[in-house]
Nucleic acid binder design. Sequence first.
DNA 1: CGGTTATGTTCGAATAAACACATATAGTCA
DNA 2: TGACTATATGTGTTTATTCGAACATAACCG
Lengths: 116, 116
Amino acid sequence: MLQQIPTQEVSQLEANLCNAFVDPTRILILYKLNEHPYNVTELTHQLSTTQPKISRHLKILRNLGLVRTTRQGVTITYELADVRLIEVLDILRGVLRDSITVRANLIETLQVTRLA
Amino acid sequence: MLQQIPTQEVSQLEANLCNAFVDPTRILILYKLNEHPYNVTELTHQLSTTQPKISRHLKILRNLGLVRTTRQGVTITYELADVRLIEVLDILRGVLRDSITVRANLIETLQVTRLA
DNA sequence: CGGTTATGTTCGAATAAACACATATAGTCA
DNA sequence: TGACTATATGTGTTTATTCGAACATAACCG
């Protein structure tokens, strides 16, 4: 089992991997590819952005090994390499939702306190 | 249920949250705080780095709502706000491990092919 | 071959991150 | 109050990231 104290190097690799998630376009791409595979042009239209932008982000995801490609003639289809990525993103959305709720409750509390 | 197509704004928030994970020091802090709460000085020694560096990273994690603080006199103890963060990091380590394995197999395949 | 479409890459500018080092704040105790 | 400890922040520098716009490559078809 690898489950030990994470060393500096492992954390560096892990941090590197998380680079996939710090850009909203890349997150949208990952969610889209979770629906089913898409090629670059399709993704460009789906996310209504420019093709070079999509290509660049796909390159980053590809280098991280998070998407796989298959070529059919000119078009290159991208697919998700690991469903656990979506699992991670879903968990994070849960964390996000709760953190927003906590914040909203805090604000409400502050307002009530101020009124009292 | 929030479980729908993620919009641009949600993805932006999610990407923002993931900023917590793109720095190896912050990952190490999160894992450390998963053991049990620590104060700044303790974390500084545990990760053998400088105190301002730890303080700055803790500030980022605090602003993201991922750690909570309690003050006892002068010392401020930090604790993990949500265990799901560790769940996420563990999943990612799994992804990382598999991706390294795939890469290793690929290299081996290339070498065998070259020799044949 | 030339034209067309799909995808990838280069470049420069703008913005943001992280660090070391120095300094500030704030609580405690004498 | 003054000294001491714990934590936070300001500053300047260095390095990354992202983008649009232009350009390059590569496959297909006539």
